[in-house]
Measured scan of single mutants.
Amino acid sequence: MTEYKLVVVGAGGVGKSALTIQLIQNHFVDEYDPTIEDSYRKQVVIDGETCLLDILDTAGQEEYSAMRDQYMRTGEGFLCVFAINNTKSFEDIHHYREQIKRVKDSEDVPMVLVGNKCDLPSRTVDTKQAQDLARSYGIPFIETSAKTRQGVDDAFYTLVREIRKHKEKMSKDGKKKKKKSKTKCVIM
């Protein structure tokens, strides 16, 4: 069974824990209790493949930012979460993405942009803004509501699919490099 290491990042209060708990335990946590770091595991079937999701729910508070490099190193894919009623959390996505790329030393890291709290009427981040940002990053965008469960499975499952595509691409690139290195030079 394939294991996928997913990391949920975003500013404090955007609903990272609520999304994760909704996926794992099928219930909505409405009281806000700032996370330092929590880890969850769940076995699911995605596109006919049974897999184990190892999900790291991270601290959004700035005082825990020193811990970010460590979990970013171990993560295979990242859910970059903002709240649709919090423009600052949307603007912060850029910083999370840049930090992930720096730590992973790669421009090509599996990510999904997630606009959470889409059940709320007080939207300050337009869907088109988020779609445009995701398009500019070359990553999928999904709106979710941890409260109603809308888009929750889709967000995590899409990230797994992005990781699969990335692994497939990397193995193809690896095979191309191996083929090239088999060419021999004969000096007579």
Results as ranks from 00 to 15, higher is better:
residue 139 I to E: 12
residue 96 Y to C: 08
residue 30 D to K: 11
residue 10 G to F: 03
residue 98 E to S: 05
residue 108 D to T: 07
residue 72 M to A: 06
residue 100 I to H: 14
residue 62 E to K: 07
residue 8 V to M: 09
residue 79 L to D: 01
residue 25 Q to W: 11
residue 53 L to V: 11
residue 135 R to N: 12
residue 20 T to H: 00
residue 67 M to P: 10
residue 84 I to T: 13
residue 19 L to F: 12
residue 35 T to G: 00
residue 67 M to N: 14
residue 64 Y to A: 11
residue 172 K to A: 07
residue 5 K to Y: 00
residue 118 C to P: 14
residue 130 A to F: 14
residue 19 L to K: 14
residue 14 V to C: 07
residue 110 P to V: 03
residue 166 H to E: 05
residue 12 G to L: 04
residue 124 T to Q: 08
residue 121 P to E: 13
residue 63 E to C: 08
residue 115 G to L: 09
residue 32 Y to N: 01
residue 60 G to Y: 01
residue 95 H to V: 03
residue 55 I to T: 08
residue 79 L to I: 13
residue 176 K to H: 09
residue 149 R to I: 03
residue 99 Q to S: 15
residue 7 V to P: 01
residue 33 D to W: 02
residue 134 A to C: 10
residue 104 K to W: 14
residue 41 R to E: 01
residue 80 C to R: 00
residue 27 H to V: 11
residue 62 E to V: 04
residue 158 T to H: 11
residue 43 Q to W: 02
residue 76 E to C: 12
residue 95 H to A: 15
residue 153 D to Y: 07
residue 93 I to T: 15
residue 135 R to I: 14
residue 47 D to V: 03
residue 26 N to M: 06
residue 114 V to D: 00
residue 55 I to N: 03
residue 48 G to K: 10
residue 71 Y to K: 02
residue 97 R to N: 05
residue 127 T to Y: 06
residue 105 D to H: 11
residue 20 T to E: 01
residue 136 S to V: 09
residue 185 C to D: 15
residue 121 P to C: 08
residue 97 R to T: 13
residue 114 V to F: 14
residue 118 C to N: 11
residue 19 L to A: 15
residue 85 N to Y: 12
residue 68 R to V: 11
residue 72 M to N: 10
residue 54 D to C: 01
residue 88 K to N: 10
residue 137 Y to A: 05
residue 16 K to I: 00
residue 75 G to A: 15
residue 60 G to N: 01
residue 23 L to Y: 08
residue 104 K to M: 14
residue 12 G to A: 10
residue 100 I to L: 14
residue 136 S to N: 07
residue 23 L to H: 14
residue 153 D to R: 06
residue 152 V to A: 10
residue 144 T to G: 03
residue 133 L to T: 08
residue 3 E to P: 05
residue 53 L to F: 11
residue 125 V to Y: 09
residue 172 K to Q: 07
residue 18 A to E: 00
residue 83 A to D: 15
residue 174 G to P: 04
residue 170 M to T: 04
residue 101 K to N: 06
residue 181 S to F: 12
residue 110 P to C: 04
residue 97 R to I: 15
residue 38 D to S: 00
residue 64 Y to K: 12
residue 96 Y to F: 13
residue 67 M to A: 04
residue 176 K to V: 13
